[in-house]
């Protein structure tokens, strides 16, 4: 018998799989745009301390609220600091904190969701009602409470954000698990006598991983917005560390005559969020879990 040539695909290494996914993502215009924005922001976050033209905390009253010029590309703010320097540095904290925050959210949300989906019954009921209860609390109030009690250090912000954004992942992971759980290969593993842990690790995670990763990527962009809101309210990073949320908050009162001081951080923040969103979308499509296929006519 001949071996079908289309189906002669072999098991690939994780790296080969990842590069294939990235190539598929980049082959779509929206994916390419999203990926480039995201990569640009990440590179910028790494190199910005070395390329910043000015000192981000150098206050100079004589340079207050200067319009953009050859020396100060994005102008200066109310304390005479260079807006360009502060903008390119302003994403670093947000990016780092929210990246690790979403990792934590993915981990606890994903695992708890899978566990609940698998065991079902009473435990599932109780856990899900608790998650629902948390979902009904406005997160910003809860965050403000935590931050005002424990301070705004990174060690507090990362787990706190991770916790609040993981609740949604619990639901997605549980739903994805429910899709898989009824399949015969799970029944088969059960009938063989595998432990719950082994079933989760070997049978379920490979099948729900994609859905959870996509959800996690989406959560990342929401968390970024959430973190910037905290900074905007003065509960995120503390001055004089440059941060977009804080910069917007400081400059918004002067918007009518010094628009440059507020526009630069807004562009930075929104472009990053759009970048992450587009990337997550393209990621989902590349994995083939996008369900928006055209209905038959």
């Amino acid at each position: 018998m001949k071996v079908d040539n289309i189906y002669k695909e072999e098991k690939k290494s994780a790296f080969a799989k990842l590069s294939e996914i990235i190539i598929t993502m980049a082959s779509r215009p929206s994916g390419l745009i999203g990926l480039s924005i995201l990569v640009f922001h990440i590179i910028l976050a790494f190199i910005s301390p070395y390329i910043a033209p000015h000192d981000f905390k150098a206050i100079d009253p004589t340079l207050m609220l200067q319009a953009p010029s050859a020396e100060y590309w994005f102008g200066t703010d109310d304390l005479g600091r260079d807006v360009f320097t502060r903008t390119i540095l302003g994403g670093r904290t947000a990016l780092t904190i929210t990246f690790f925050g979403s990792l934590i959210a993915l981990l606890w949300g994903g695992l708890l969701g899978i566990f609940c989906g698998l065991v079902g019954g009473k435990i599932d009921d109780v856990v899900m009602r608790i998650v629902d209860a948390f979902l009904s609390i406005p997160w910003i109030l809860a965050m403000l409470l935590i931050v005002s009690l424990l301070g705004t250090s990174t060690e507090v912000l990362i787990p706190a954000l991770g916790f609040f954004y993981g609740k949604g992942i619990v639901r997605v992971a549980r739903a994805a698990t429910h899709d898989v759980i009824a399949k015969d290969f799970i029944v088969s593993a059960r009938a063989r006598g595998h432990s719950n842990f082994s079933i989760i690790w070997n049978e379920i995670i490979p099948n729900v991983r994609d859905a959870i990763l996509v959800e996690g990527a989406m959560r990342w962009s929401w968390m970024l917005l959430g973190f910037s809101s905290l900074s905007f309210l003065g509960f995120g990073v503390s001055p004089p560390t440059p941060d977009w949320g804080l910069m917007i908050s400081n400059a918004r009162g002067l918007m009518s005559f010094a628009y440059w001081a507020v526009i630069a951080p807004i562009v930075g923040l929104s472009s990053l969020i759009i970048g992450i969103n587009l990337t997550a979308d393209a990621f989902a499509k590349a994995l083939g879990i996008d369900r928006s296929t055209k209905a038959p006519v």
Partner: peptide, 27 residues
């Protein structure tokens, strides 16, 4: 299942109707 010991589980094996569902697509 919970009360059977592993050997009791080994002696009886199942083959399912639809191999699309009974084989893990990611293995």
């Amino acid at each position: 299942l919970k009360e059977r010991d592993p050997n009791d589980l080994r002696i009886i094996q199942l083959i399912f109707q639809n191999p699309d569902e009974s084989l893990n697509p990611n293995h």
